[in-house]
């Protein structure tokens, strides 16, 4: 299904200690920084001012940072849908929880042992009351994201969709989220999604 009505309005990448908004690098840290330090430095740089951020796991922090960059220049309607995917699910937090199972587990770790929690955290932060779904795929699947976003838009379930890839495994992260709506210059297509995703992954 493709009617050419929808555009890739904007996009964000986070990978290898760098954050890109569109093709512009908006933040970079030394590669020697660990994941937690990179996330904290990004939070400060973006002036997020959301104390709950510090309680989140790495996947949710990446989602909050990415959405902050992506939403900065746009009005985000409460019906904006979220269609995310990754391959590692919530593995980093699952492992942390598993390690604690010999003794006393932490409730605040346990609550992040699902990948779709990131959707909830973004929805709470940006007051979204919308459709959301999280797919586990072996790799970035442009066709799935495009088709699912179009179905939601065509069904009038939403006026915009944020879709993409948000993966975290062994402290390596790969985030690509894009805003799909009727605004913008880049037509929504499988090819364009793939091209934009690999921009930072070549």
């Amino acid at each position: 299904m493709s009617n050419g009505n929808y555009k890739i309005t904007d996009y964000v990448h986070i990978k290898d200690h760098r954050i890109f908004h569109g093709k512009d690098q908006v933040f970079k840290t030394e590669k020697s920084l660990g994941l937690d330090q990179f996330l904290k430095a990004s939070y400060k740089k973006l002036e997020i001012a959301y104390p709950k951020f510090h309680k989140m796991d790495g996947l949710c922090k990446l989602g909050i940072i990415a959405s902050e960059v992506l939403f900065k220049e746009h009005f985000i309607s409460p019906d904006t849908a979220l269609v995310f995917s990754n391959s590692a699910s919530s593995l980093e937090t699952d492992k942390k929880h598993q390690q604690a199972m010999g003794g006393m587990v932490s409730p605040s770790v346990f609550v992040y042992t699902l990948p779709n929690i990131v959707l909830g955290e973004i929805s709470i932060k940006h007051k979204l009351q919308s459709e959301n779904v999280f797919f586990i795929e072996n790799q970035f699947n442009a066709e799935l994201l495009k088709e699912y976003a179009e179905v939601l838009l065509e069904a009038k379930k939403t006026s915009a969709v944020v879709c993409g890839w948000i993966d975290l495994k062994n402290a390596k992260y790969d985030v690509f989220l894009c805003l799909i709506s009727k605004e913008g210059e880049i037509p929504l297509s499988k090819e364009n999604l793939k091209k934009l995703y690999i921009f930072e992954n070549e």
Binding site: P107, S108, V111
Partner: peptide, 11 residues
């Protein structure tokens, strides 16, 4: 969730 953490901390 913080309440649960506090309960764990007490124990």
């Amino acid at each position: 969730i913080d309440v649960l953490e506090l309960i764990v901390m007490l124990e």
